[in-house]
Amino acid sequence: MTGAVPRVGVVTFPGSLDDGDALRAIEQMGGHAVSLWHGERDLRAVDAVILPGGFSYGDYLRCGAIARFAPVMEPVMAFAERGGPVLGICNGFQVLCEAGLLPGAMIRNRSLRFVCRDVWLRVETAQSCITDGLTPGETIEIPIKHGEGQWIATPEQLADVERDMLVVFRYASRTGIVDEAQNPNGAVNNVAGIRNAAGNVVGLMPHPEHAVDPDVGPTGGQPLFASLLHMAMAGVIG
């Protein structure tokens, strides 16, 4: 079963791109990285699951629409319902929305342009599997790279999300000011990431797995992976 080091699984769908970086980030942050295959109904006894970025199944029809029905998603959804930590990054976030594990949906960026740059995020809650130990109001820098990252929701969903404090990150300035100037894709209320009510399922458009190595850029992803490993460990102990 599991040892002292938490096992974190990363699902590879056909068209996933960032599974390699996610696996590497887990190892770099002290976890044991486990590759999971979209066509298998087996989570290989992992303590947390990451759905990585990319263009699963070519993003045909809608981003994440086909991946959501991949065989591996059955155990992932059961794992999430049992309270297991599940993190969806970029395309993974889209998959979680399509699967109904998170509210809302993603449409094309307001600018219609693919946006690829480092952004600042304001932490909105510590009640999530990737912000445990962080302080609401603090800012972190990590990159975004997406063409369809404009998160939207029905008015009812949006009201629930804000009332229940399900927003985990908002696009902000370095000093934490949230306004339209800091919004790279037109997401409603500058939403960059959200969680489910329990906080064990989180989706975000920015890429923490590209921001753990000081040699190649900002390191804002480090505390997020530290949190995920900590929460995965809690599952091991619990």
Binding site: L61, R62, A65, C97, P103, G104, A105, I152, A153, T154
Partner: peptide
């Protein structure tokens, strides 16, 4: 179930 996303 698949062809459309009823949210959007």
């Amino acid at each position: 179930r698949l062809l459309s996303n009823p949210v959007i």
